[in-house]
Simulated assay, not measured.
Amino acid sequence: MPEPLKNIFSPPLLEPFSDLVQKVWPPFAPDDFLQKVFDDQYEKLELKQRTRHIAHCLRACLPEDYRTALGIVQAVTQRYIDQHGEKLTFQWIFLPEFIEAHGVHDLDASLPAIETITRWSSCEFTVRPFLLAHPERMYAQMLAWSKHPSAMVRRLSSEGIRPRLPWGMGVPALKRDPAPILPILENLKHDPAETVRRSVANNLNDIAKEHPDLVLDIAKRWLGLHPDTDWIVRHACRGLLKNGNARALAYFGFEKGVADVAVEGLQFSPSVNIGGRFDFSFLLINRAAIPQSLRLEYQIDYQTLSGKTSQKVFKIKEVELAPGQEMGIERYQRFQDFTTRKHYPGEHALRILVNGLALAEGKFMVK
């Protein structure tokens, strides 16, 4: 059983941190801070609760004036950056939490601190309440950050303004109208940092949920500019490809509804236990007189707690089959519970998709 992620927020992490805070601001009392953090309720707290709790305890041990306290947090962060360089360090996420929890009221002080702290622990979640409270000011700031010399700050300009940031606070206005995001992505599409380009692709994938044609228009303009933008476009269109969008398929050389392609001999486990492995196999056949470019996926209809089904598509591979060629495919899907997916017993469905269309399917039981 893997160690729960929440357990990284432990004395071995926070003891040296509290010593550094005291070096930056001598009145800080490490023992008082650690006692507040590791109280008799701490073991019951989950991941998000722990990081917010640490941020609150830190606030309680620093000067009452927010700007003075924030200056200490910013100086501590700068010490880490000077010593170790810029990083995406998850274990220090309570530093961005400090601003998220206590600084939305003071934009002028918080924005420079965000610019520093995101170079050590990403502030993508921190900026979400700022976007809700100060949209126009934040849109301008995010655009300015897209031209920042630090790749970590440039990444924040895209990641923080995603319409559907996973585990992040929603920003409904950006779902309705992503116009403020587009100039940022234009600035970043040729970014030298892979982490920045990946964020651009994920942002476009988010936008495509509500505005597929807008993303496809951008994809058309960006395709062929450079191998990096080609990668961004393909990754950005992954949701559209999984949904069988004909225009997206065509951009990458796939024709929706290909003729003379068959999926035969679909075999799969009749049942699988929660925590077990579901195996399946099939034969892919090109009966056409010409080669066929094929995108293979499988879809599973999962049972949900409410009794409805939730569909999830998984990519298998992209292949080109010669005339008359056959290809055997074997795959499996684990039914292990995770924090992001919980399985429920009942009838499930499996479908084999070729260029977005189901060519074979069957049902199985999860126990």
Rank of each mutant, 00 (worst) to 15 (best):
G239Q: 11
Q83C: 12
L131I: 03
E255Y: 13
Q299V: 11
H226N: 15
D106T: 14
L283M: 15
E100P: 04
L216Q: 03
N7Y: 14
F252D: 05
P63N: 02
L143Q: 10
E320Q: 13
V354T: 08
F282M: 07
T89R: 15
A60V: 03
G276D: 09
I181H: 02
R128Y: 04
Q35I: 12
P26F: 04
R238C: 07
A29S: 15
L131W: 02
I290G: 13
R351A: 10
S157L: 03
Y298S: 01
F90M: 15
P212L: 06
S18W: 03
L350E: 01
G224R: 04
Y298P: 01
F335P: 06
P63F: 04
Y139K: 06
Q22W: 01
N355I: 09
N273I: 14
E264N: 12
G170P: 13
E124K: 06
L13I: 12
P178D: 09
S306I: 08
S293G: 11
P270H: 03
L296E: 00
Q74D: 13
E43C: 13
G85W: 09
H53P: 07
L62P: 00
R351K: 12
P192H: 11
Y302M: 05
E159N: 06
D206K: 03
A259S: 14
L111Y: 09
P183M: 13
E326C: 12
E186D: 14
K367S: 15
R247V: 11
W120T: 00
F98S: 00
Q299P: 04
H84V: 15
R341W: 07
L214I: 10
R162C: 00
I8S: 06
T118C: 14
G362V: 04
K189P: 07
N243H: 15
C123F: 00
N187F: 02
E194F: 12
